[in-house]
């Protein structure tokens, strides 16, 4: 009994079944795909419920409350519960309190992260000596791209010329991005095929 169920074919039967059910969409929409789709949605929602209960309610709230007497953890708990009053129209306005807290904190973090963590280092590494082609490409590429996305003035005359150059740069970058996107999606397909033919069926190495 044990030896049968540890055989790859039986051991991986369930994941293989659901993998094939999803691929059946390529032929046409069908009940197997719909079944798999709803199982997936249900499990995903259930996963979040289980995860948040354990990681947040239990580990972040109850453990500090019960082991270290951190009863102030009831405050974020109460703020979190206020998010649910959106289902009651008469007191829906109360959701603004936790929302204001989250948005305010996020805005503070974002402001610093964007300015200090992204804009300054990226600008700093663009201030290059224009003594070789690669540096010139970087400086011109960054400037013309920024000009292309500057829509406060019509792209005519000199500005239009610079924006046009920016568009060519953008096309090169998007072409490269397309190549990488193909690479990414193909990798995922290869991964599933490796699962089906190597792990499950053991037909390939």
């Amino acid at each position: 009994m044990d030896s049968i169920w540890t055989q790859p074919f039986f051991y991986f039967f369930l994941p293989a079944f659901f993998t094939l059910a999803v691929y059946s969409l390529l032929f046409k929409d069908n009940p197997w795909f719909k079944f798999a789709e709803h199982v997936f949605a249900g499990l995903s929602a259930g996963y979040y419920a289980g995860l948040i209960f354990t990681s947040v309610i239990k580990q972040q709230m109850f453990v500090p409350m019960l082991s270290s007497g951190r009863w102030d953890m009831l405050i974020p708990g109460a703020l979190g519960c206020l998010l649910f009053v959106r289902f009651f129209p008469r007191i829906r306005w109360l959701t603004r309190i936790p929302l204001a807290f989250v948005i305010g904190t996020t805005a503070g973090i974002m402001f610093l992260q964007q300015l200090h963590g992204l804009i300054l280092p990226q600008l700093q590494s663009t201030l290059l000596p224009l003594n070789d082609l690669s540096n010139i490409i970087i400086v011109v590429g960054v400037l013309t791209t920024l000009v292309y996305f500057y829509f406060s003035k019509p792209h005519t005359g000199a500005l239009g010329g610079v924006a046009k150059a920016g568009m060519w740069f953008i096309m090169v970058a998007f072409g490269a991005h397309f190549g990488y996107t193909v690479m990414a999606r193909v990798s995922l397909l290869i991964g599933r095929m490796q699962f089906l033919f190597v792990d499950w069926l053991h037909w390939a190495q």
């Binding site: 974002m110 402001f111 964007q114 300015l115 992204l118 804009i119 990226q122 600008l123 590494s125 663009t126 690669s134 490409i137 970087i138 400086v139 011109v140 590429g141 960054v142 400037l143 013309t144 791209t145 920024l146 292309y148 996305f149 920016g166 740069f169 953008i170 090169v172 970058a173 490269a176 991005h177």
Partner: peptide
């Protein structure tokens, strides 16, 4: 080079907007 230049332009533009 060309791709990084454009990505950098987009990062700077988007970051200015977010900030």
């Amino acid at each position: 080079f060309p791709s990084v230049a454009v990505q950098r332009g987009i990062i700077i533009g988007a970051a200015l907007g977010a900030a």
